[in-house]
Design a binder for these strands. Structure first.
Lengths: 211, 211
DNA sequence: ACCGAATCTGACCAGTCGGTCAAGATTCTG
DNA sequence: CAGAATCTTGACCGACTGGTCAGATTCGGT
């Protein structure tokens, strides 16, 4: 994944506008569902401009994905450190993930759609960086378990479950709305969601209440 | 959603073959990512044949969706009945959902992709039948809580979480594989997954162990 | 002010896709 | 077995999409 060479400010402005528009458009319909002309319209630029900066639709899509993944790695995962009591750490992690899902639902959906396709472009990331992060966080979980601060669990699966639950409120938001009979999720709904997910994780892992 | 009129056996054979092929092809790439020619090749029939039976791509897609949704409603949800002890009921429900996700990952992915798109075709189902089912199951949960058999929870959110966790093993299977460093999920992996999800749900909801 | 590089853009193109159609093959029915 | 109804199919088509390109415009340095 390579970004175009750095130069003038016009380049930065245009690429930023294009990337933002692309994220919006790719968020509904994924790669195949998006139209270059639609992205161009969303960005308020002629279509040829997108090709000037990104060459092909796939390169633009890769750039959007890279941006999402980078933003993701920068956040959240440093809640899981051995010094912190697990109740605080896990609750914080869940809250951070849930907040992220709310703040950038489009990003979450693009990621989800890509994994659904079989993650042809994300494989290196999943098998590399993400795997290493999970291994590191798993070691912390095992440390807590060994010190009797929580039950013995399958750490990786706990993370899969946390991701699944938190992302469901972004990716499947419409389903949640429809089933609850809302036209949009209220703050109370999201508070209930946070309470439920946190409870399942903390009590589910037998985390001792902080003293 | 209407199916073609019932007549000869050729019709039944062809439509069955087409529906099966369509489920396979729609499972990767969703509606937009699928090509009618690809479905035809998968079914071993000329493309014009698909149009003879289903008219348009969208009608074929609707037929596939309807089939998935129907199969879904027929299964699983009758675990959640007040007579059963919650430990057994919830564990059974989780196991059934997980087994379904394993048995027909394609169906799960198609549903997920559709909801990701904003569920334009599933809205009536989500707001109607599914909502009613969730309300009924929520009443059972509340009944159990009121009788001190489990904690007081937000029932609907518990179901969202269960769905999220169980479906993640179908929809995000490649992510799970990649992070675990497997080339496919072993029976042991799935057993660990089941144990983790079940533990989170049962302990997370404070379900009393059956006596 | 000047010039080369960078940026922008409308017009255009070739390939692909969903869908059509008319003619032939097969099956059903009286 | 005749003829109607159903089914099958290759060839074809218009619309749309990603991508190209040459010329116009703007920008940055001197």
């Amino acid at each position: 994944m390579d970004s175009p060479p750095e130069t003038g400010t016009a380049r930065r402005d245009s690429t930023a506008a294009i990337l933002a528009a692309a994220e919006t458009v790719f968020a509904r319909g994924g790669f195949e569902g998006a139209r270059m002309s639609e992205i161009a319209a969303e960005a308020g630029l002629p279509k040829a401009n997108l090709h000037y900066y990104f060459g092909t639709k796939e390169r633009l899509y890769r750039a959007v994905l890279e941006r999402i993944v980078t933003a993701w790695l920068d956040a959240a995962s440093d809640w899981i450190v051995p010094e912190r009591p697990p109740a605080e750490a896990l609750a914080g992690y869940v809250r951070a993930k849930l907040a992220d899902a709310q703040a950038r639902p489009g990003a979450s959906r693009i990621f989800a759609a890509e994994v659904l396709r079989g993650a042809p472009l994300l494989m290196p990331f999943l098998q590399g960086e993400l795997r290493r992060r999970v291994q590191a966080m798993s070691a912390v979980i095992e440390h807590w378990s060994a010190h009797g601060l929580m039950d013995t669990v399958h750490p990786a699966h706990v993370f899969f479950c946390i991701w699944a639950m938190t992302q469901t409120y972004a990716d499947f938001g419409v389903q949640v709305q429809a089933v609850l009979g809302r036209d949009r999720l209220s703050a109370q709904d999201m508070a209930d969601a946070a309470a439920t997910v946190t409870a399942l994780v903390l009590k589910g892992c037998g985390v001792r209440a902080a003293m």
